[in-house]
C-alpha cells in the first residue's frame, strides 16, 4: 500500500464515520486487518489502547498510530491529516447553511440507513476483537472485558482513567503472578 493509498483509505473512513468515539475503530479494523491484511487483530487492539493514553479524539489517535506503524513518521502525518480533513471541510461548508441541511428529510433518511449499517458492522467487529482478546488467559481476560463493558456503559467514569487502570492491572498481574498461574 502506497502512502497515497493509505491517506485515501483513512480519508474515506473519516468521511463516513459519524458520532466519533470508538465508532472508527471497527471500521479501521475492517479495512486494515480484513481487507488489506496489513495489521493483525492483536496489533489493532494495541494501537487502540495506546491511542487512549493521550488526550484528544480516539479517531485521530488511531489514524495517526496506524500510519506510524505502516509508514513511519510520514505515515503518521498522513493519517493525522486524513482523519481531520473530512470533518474540517464539511463543517467549514455547512457552517453557512447547517440548519437547512440538518433538517432535510432525504439527508435524514440516508443518515438513518447509514447508522443501521454501521451498527451491524460494529457488532461484527466486537465479536472478532473478543475472540482475539480471549485467546490466552481466558478467565482473567473475560473478567476484565465484562467489567470494563459494564463500567463504561452504565457509568460516566472518564475513559482515560479506565484505560490507565486496565494497564495497571495487567502490569501488576503479570509482574507478580507467574504467567502459567494466571487463568
Amino acid at each position: 500500500m502506497s502512502l497515497w493509498q493509505f491517506f485515501l483509505t483513512i480519508f474515506k473512513i473519516s468521511s463516513i464515520t459519524f458520532g466519533g468515539g470508538y465508532t472508527i475503530v471497527p471500521v479501521v479494523r475492517d479495512a486494515f486487518v480484513d481487507q488489506y491484511e496489513l495489521l493483525d487483530e492483536e496489533e489493532m487492539l494495541d494501537l487502540t489502547a495506546l491511542g487512549q493514553t493521550v488526550p484528544g479524539p480516539i479517531a485521530v489517535s488511531v489514524a495517526l498510530l496506524v500510519g506510524y506503524r505502516l509508514k513511519g513518521r510520514r505515515g503518521a502525518l498522513s493519517g493525522l491529516l486524513a482523519a481531520i480533513l473530512p470533518p474540517f471541510i464539511i463543517i467549514s461548508i455547512l457552517y453557512f447553511f447547517y440548519e437547512a441541511f440538518a433538517s432535510n428529510v432525504w439527508v435524514r433518511a440516508g443518515l438513518r440507513g447509514m447508522s443501521g449499517a454501521i451498527s451491524a458492522i460494529m457488532i461484527n467487529a466486537v465479536y472478532r476483537l473478543a475472540k482475539v482478546s480471549l485467546r490466552k488467559h481466558r478467565l482473567f481476560s473475560a473478567l476484565l472485558m465484562i467489567a470494563t463493558f459494564i463500567i463504561s456503559f452504565f457509568t460516566s467514569i472518564n475513559k482515560a482513567l479506565i484505560v490507565f487502570t486496565l494497564g495497571l492491572v495487567g502490569y501488576l498481574m503479570f509482574t507478580f503472578v507467574p504467567e502459567d498461574k494466571i487463568p
Binding site: 494495541d46 467487529a125 482478546s133 488467559h137 472485558m145 467489567a147 475513559k159 484505560v163 495497571l168 498481574m173
Partner: peptide, 16 residues
C-alpha cells in the same frame, strides 16, 4: 497490554 486488550474490547462493545 495483557490488561488493555480485553478492556479495550469491552470499551468498543459498550460504544457499539
Amino acid at each position: 497490554l495483557h490488561g488493555l486488550r480485553p478492556g479495550v474490547t469491552g470499551l468498543v462493545a459498550s460504544a457499539t
